[in-house]
Computed example of a mutant assay.
Amino acid sequence: MTATAPLPPAPLTRALDLIGNTPLVRLEGPSAAAGCDIYGKCEFANPGGSVKDRAALWIIRDAEARGVLKPGGTVVEGTAGNTGIGIALVANALGYKTVIVMPDNQSREKMDTLRALGAELVLVPPTKFANPGHFVHTSRRLAEETEGAVWANQFDNIANRKAHIDSTAPELWSQLDGRIDGFTCAAGTGGTIAGVGLGLKEKDENVRIALTDPHGAALYNYYAHGELEAEGSSVAEGIGQGRITANLDGAPVDTQFRISDEEGLHWVARLLREEGLCLGLSSGINVAGAVALGRQLVAEGREAPRVATILCDSGFRYLSTIFNADWLCEKSLPVFDWLAD
């Protein structure tokens, strides 16, 4: 008897339904390194190319439901880029304008994408959160000064983490047939790790939730020692946090790992050369954290543990940075061997 191919899914009724329901893939190299199954949620498959599409949709729908975003209005946000891209696409689909404030040290690809999507892009110098010129504070002021505008406020708007409670966590649970031992990712706003953590803990309290923190962020020390203290630095975009945002408040973090840029780039290189996945540095850092979590669970004697993480966005968004030999040399980071040649 000849096997028949499965039928393709029915067509969706609108483009915004493309957000979410992303594939989950077993990562061969990380699984071998951890001694257990490591899975990556392919968030680069969202229409805006990143995990931040989920937060963008939930934040805008929440603003509509609360009556603060009216037809023809404007959504203003401060972002490292990916949330802005998601907001611009969702806003376009729903008839809103977009103003995005971004630090001027983020990748050129993100800036060009935002302009191509029709967003008004405002670039500001990178600075500490305490500085009133910080991109978050600048975006809040612009929203207050713009008629008919709402401030998305992704860091402290818990519609962000609700996106992952409602969608990412149940998707992972279903895709892994209700058997998942650990989940880890880095925190930027905190929406993903808090939302997925809360959603998975509702299903099974024994799922271990781990923070994977880059150097230069303060959350590793917070969860390990109770103090917000940063050490070192990282060039990773969109992750790393120095405060407990509203989205992070109450996040069920059981353990924590600190991952260097070098280790993250190691996995970026391996996943590209060995598995055909072109990813950004935040994804590489997440995968390194997943390997660490998997090894921890194996060492504790868990039988064939399964660990999931987030593949945040595509490496094509970083051609001018981590895939540029001159840029890597300027940052004193290792150059991928194929770029060195």
Rank of each mutant, 00 (worst) to 15 (best):
L69Q: 11
G191M: 07
R115M: 10
L328S: 05
Y96P: 09
A56R: 01
R273S: 14
E275A: 07
P126N: 02
R14D: 01
T321S: 14
R26K: 15
L7K: 13
E300V: 14
E275M: 11
G190E: 07
G73D: 08
V90T: 13
L333Q: 09
L24W: 05
A56E: 05
L123R: 12
Q256C: 13
G280W: 02
E300K: 03
D37F: 01
E64V: 14
R66P: 01
E229P: 00
R273D: 14
L271T: 04
G73H: 09
T4C: 09
K201V: 04
A304M: 10
E109W: 07
N153C: 12
P103E: 00
Y220I: 08
C185A: 08
P334D: 05
N157V: 13
C329M: 11
D104P: 04
A217G: 13
G276R: 09
T138W: 00
L94D: 03
A159F: 03
P170Q: 05
P132R: 05
L89H: 04
D337K: 12
D53L: 06
V291R: 06
D254Y: 06
D181R: 08
I60H: 09
G182H: 11
G118Y: 00
P126E: 00
V268R: 05
L121D: 12
A340L: 14
T83H: 07
H134D: 08
F155G: 03
S332W: 02
S320K: 11
E144A: 15
N324W: 06
C312A: 15
C278T: 10
K203G: 05
I310F: 01
S283I: 11
A63G: 11
E275Q: 13
A63N: 07
P103T: 03
Y222T: 06
I322P: 12
D37W: 02
I165G: 03
P71A: 13
